[in-house]
Amino acid sequence: MIEILDYAFMQRALLAALLVGVAAPAVGIYLVQRHQAIMGDGIGHIALTGVALGFLLSTNAVWTAVLVSAAGAVAIELVRWYGKARGDIALALLFYGGMAGGVMIINLAPGGSTADLLTAMFGSVTTVAAEDVTAVVLLSCAVLAVCLGLRRQLFAVCQDEEFARVTGLPVRLLNLLLAVTAAVTVTVAMRVVGLLLVSALMVIPVAAAQQVTRGFAVTLGLSVTLGTLVAVSGTVVSFYADVPPGATIVLLAIAVFAALAALTPLVTRRRAVRAAGDEAPAGLLSREPAGG
């Protein structure tokens, strides 16, 4: 367990996995809350164009991917506001346009081929370079500052948008901020789990946590814990077992989901018994012994 830290590339990989494990569920929870669980996946498609642009311009792909996917996320938000009848069609155009654009641009780049996109699509946490670490640290901190610092505002907007407007919250601004934050998260997680699996790390820890929770704050805390756990342990497992880290992380997350799903009936039953104890006079489940 200690020897893993002797390698500089593994130190960087574990740091990146840790940050992504915290940041991805922190933004994912708001997307899940307003039934946009698949949004991260769409942004991932769009980010491919950004990665290819970085290759074409020979600059760091993280930053071009951030710019392109943020622009894409803002476009998705605009479609949601102004889109007339078929918002889903507009989104499909954007998603597949992003993917096709990526493939086209990478092949236009001198010496580039579709194979160069594979790293971005499936992740390669062990090749995180020193300059990538700076970007990942900065961007993760920005994502966390938004998701935790504005959690009450984002909660209100995602819970009941109309009520949030009447409260006087700058709903459009918050929606745009959330969209851009999601885009940044996708690009940060790109190196760790890959663009095609980013959405999994944003959604599955939240889905797993909410099976056993009753409140938003607790769900947020638990999903961040689970996200960190699977991201870090997946990276470690991939090092020793010599398996791809992105796939390991996602499969671990699904295993955690399944384990909690198996636990759910127990938690629900214990809660019902406790509620019966608390509220016996109200006649709820009055067959249970009071105080049980």
Binding site: R34, H35, D160, F216, A217
Partner: peptide
């Protein structure tokens, strides 16, 4: 807008993440 309290028509559509009664009521304080 803080002078206005709005109670929308109750919808049966639940949010995708659980929220406690206190959390929902607290959002009225924003």
């Amino acid at each position: 807008w803080r002078r206005v309290g709005y109670v929308p028509q109750r919808s049966t559509a639940a949010a995708g993440v659980p929220a406690t009664v206190r959390e929902v009521v607290s959002s009225g304080r924003l």
